[in-house]
Nucleic acid binder design. Structure first.
Lengths: 251, 251
DNA sequence: CGAGGGGTTGATCTCCTTCAACGGAGGTGG
DNA sequence: CCACCTCCGTTGAAGGAGATCAACCCCTCG
């Protein structure tokens, strides 16, 4: 057994958090062919409307999925960290209406669609696991709609920080109260539907209330309870509390 | 061959718009077991956190997927019309963090998860088709993030009307310039992240500009081009322009 | 006939944007 | 080694989009 890519191992771990796979299936995932690409900070990985033949697995760094308006303004619709397959959706919809961009210097694994599709077709459990993984992203972006539509700047920012904290913790990349979020205030603004000026003022407000400090892209949550309260944060939408057994049979 | 439910036929038609299925597979979908339920206007179909054993296929009416804040405020994250399987996602994630509510009197088909899952496991093409269908909803909700985050009230409302127009047209339930949207201004507000008062004023503004008229839940688009322009609307996110051939092999 | 829900209007307030300027840290070239 | 530049963060003042609150209208239904 050769040493697998740590990125694929992270991806498999993410899948296994919510799905059960046999050792054969697990091995097949670890052996997926791929090309490793280093993406500099602020470089676009792919743009909207492109038809791709591979999915992007994040090896390291921070990657954003974004929607672009006519005037060039961008809205970030998702943030992806190491172990996330940023557009697993593209396996079934190769022409995707969104773009991917690296917010920080990142390592990306290009995993061809073909073997992913073949794996899904050969192993129904894998197909369900992939589908389920996409459902997690769906749930997250749905929550973002609620966050943007019904919360003020404080709540929105607090919610984003809570979400990323829990996700970094789940991925083993930090703790929910201390993690590296390599995004500028302008990029946070693009994710929150705010201006960078207002993100700045809102961060100061959260800091004045001794809820969270952010400096040098390092987030330190000072009072998780109160931050989650400000954010109206309920982590269940991250679909983490799936029973460890065969989740397929729970319905 | 017995007469299939028109709702299942609509659902199948929606799948076939983007996926290719054999006649055996098509027949299996039309023969899915289900229970027909009539849901009165404003009644919740299911609430957040519930673990379900069936998915909801809309037979008629207008159904909203919503997120609920602590204070009871609701944010609608998706609108579903006849032929939409409102929570096909629940097949792989039976505990869903969102609720479903009927905005108008609706007919809902409860389709048990088991046969859906069995169908997906028995036929990889069906699994991919289901997964692809979920990707459409994903793409739509992602676009809503952009709409909420980067557009003002006029653009948001115009975009929602454009989207629903195209979707009604695709589903054969009207034309993009004339369709029934059975939602109150308050419900539109819940979808747009606005107040009902402001939705009212914004509708008047669109009407003054002779872009669209809405009365008695009937939307009449007077100038599609300009409305789409105000909305910054590009229908490609609805994933309608998939080639008619075997889309699985296009990557 | 009265009640209630949805739509309409006006006045006021507030949150966030806009615009503009400045500061500090890091990188580069002379 | 310092001058300069650029990017990011920070601050202030002014303006605007939308919220809020409250009243009223119309239509439907009991």
């Amino acid at each position: 057994m050769t040493a697998a890519s740590p990125a694929l191992e992270r991806f498999l771990a993410r899948l296994l958090r919510r799905s059960t796979l046999t050792s054969v299936q697990r091995q097949a995932i670890l052996e997926l062919p791929h090309r490793v690409v280093r993406v500099p900070s602020r470089a676009d990985i792919s743009s909207a409307g492109q038809t791709l033949s591979h999915a992007c697995l994040i090896g390291s760094g921070l990657v954003a999925r974004f929607d672009e308006m006519r005037d060039g303004q961008r809205q970030i619709a998702a943030l992806h960290i190491a172990g996330d397959m940023a557009d697993l959706h593209s396996v079934v919809a190769p022409t995707r209406p969104w773009g991917l961009t690296a917010l920080s210097e990142s390592i990306v694994l290009q995993v061809p669609h073909e073997p992913l599709r073949e794996l899904a077709c050969a192993h129904p459990d894998v197909a369900l696991a992939f589908w389920r993984d996409c459902t997690v992203d769906f749930s997250v972006v749905s929550k973002w709609v609620g966050n943007l539509g019904r919360q003020g700047a404080r709540g929105r920012l607090a919610h984003l920080l809570c979400e990323m904290g829990v996700r970094f913790e789940l991925a083993g990349l930090g703790t929910r109260t201390s993690f590296a979020l390599e995004a500028t205030q302008e990029q946070l603004a693009d994710a929150l539907g705010l201006t960078s000026v207002h993100v700045n003022r809102t961060l100061q407000s959260l800091r004045r209330d001794e809820l969270v400090v952010m400096r040098n892209h390092l987030v330190e949550v000072l009072d998780w309870e109160r931050l989650a309260d400000v954010a109206d944060f309920d982590p269940s939408y991250l679909l983490t509390d799936v029973p460890p057994g065969r989740s397929e049979n729970s319905g």
